[in-house]
């Protein structure tokens, strides 16, 4: 009879603290590297005159970076829990770090453009590969695609966040590219803003829905024991719906609601982090038992991903807005 696992690895070679330290350093390094590449600021006079596009692009990238940070910390912790029993499990946090750096960097200089694009594409690819791994992990367990395995085996939604991070990064190319290539005498640029805004709105809206699905699964696992747990499965879908509505038919009248719901979703990311920190605290032993509770309690790095997606959504609205403004 085949064994469930052929792994003969002994106990982890390092502790959760080490993993978090490395992940934290990775995060910091990614931020520093990305921010250095980003200079000079878009607000500087040297920026091509397309502030709406550049600002929107930056916002999308900020969103992608936040998403990447969430993935980095979450995957580092979850894969630590899974003992990094497959070397590929290191790829997730590593790729997330690259994704953050790439997202923060501004692809202004020609020589950076390709590497950054590769960074985003890498996140996308690794995310999809991870999805495959996780599907395989669930499928091979007794019970297969049972609820128990969906709850507790490798989470299918998690690699999806890496996919989204890469996707947003790539999508951010569009407005920036437009901004850079813009010709003052191009009379149609505002229309193209609109198209790109709508494309971004569709991407961000769909991403929000995907994220909501994962949150629903995990909050369902937690039996929605706190009514607040319904917030992240009701507010983000509302925001997503209004975004998708804008993508399909960008009407100014309903944009205020879209903006409001996205801002609320962004705030929810922070509030959720607070709730999750409280959730860890209320588990047996609280933070004193953090070696267990940081892993077994609600995932603290997860909720902030909503903030990232909401930023991208807001950027999409900015672009759509800009499309409606008169040419300067």
């Amino acid at each position: 009879m085949a064994h469930v696992s052929n792994t003969r690895r002994t106990t982890s070679r390092f502790a959760l603290g080490d993993v978090l330290a490395v992940a934290g350093l990775g995060l910091a390094a990614a931020v520093v590297i990305g921010a250095r590449a980003r200079r000079p600021s878009v607000r500087a006079k040297t920026v091509p005159a397309a502030p709406e596009a550049a600002l929107a692009a930056r916002r999308v990238r900020d969103g992608a970076a936040i998403l990447g940070a969430s993935v980095l910390l979450d995957s580092a912790m979850e894969h630590y829990r899974g003992r990094f029993h497959n070397a590929a499990m290191y790829l997730a946090p590593a790729t997330a770090a690259i994704s953050i750096a790439a997202a923060l960097a501004e692809p202004r200089r020609e020589r950076l453009e390709t590497p950054l694009r590769i960074g985003h594409a890498l996140a996308l690819t690794v995310g999809f590969a991870g999805l495959g791994f996780h599907v395989y992990n669930v499928a091979k367990r007794p019970g297969g695609f049972s609820w128990n395995n969906l709850f507790y085996a490798a989470p299918l939604g998690a690699p999806g966040a890496l996919v989204l991070s890469g996707l947003l990064g790539l999508a951010s190319e569009a407005p920036t590219g437009l901004g850079r290539e813009r010709h003052r005498d191009d009379e149609h640029w505002t229309e193209r803003y609109g198209e790109e805004g709508r494309f971004l709105a569709a991407v961000a809206g769909a991403s929000l829905l995907a994220e909501t699905a994962e949150v629903w699964l995990l909050h369902f696992r937690g039996a929605f024991h706190n009514p607040a747990m319904y917030l992240p499965v009701s507010l983000p879908p509302a925001a997503a719906a209004s975004l998708l509505a804008q993508a399909i038919a960008p009407r100014r009248g309903s944009r205020a609601f879209a903006r409001l719901s996205l801002r609320a979703t962004a705030v929810l990311g922070f509030a959720g982090t607070g709730f999750h920190i409280y959730g860890v605290q209320r588990n047996m032993g609280g933070w004193r038992n953090w070696h267990q509770n940081a892993l077994a309690g609600p995932p603290t790095p997860a909720p902030i991903s909503f903030t990232g997606l909401a930023l991208a959504g807001l950027a999409a609205l900015d672009l759509i807005d800009a499309a409606g403004k008169p040419n300067r």
Binding site: N148, Y152, A223
Partner: peptide, 8 residues
Amino acid sequence: YPYRAHEV
């Protein structure tokens, strides 16, 4: 059931 099953 009011709460979800535990990890087996």
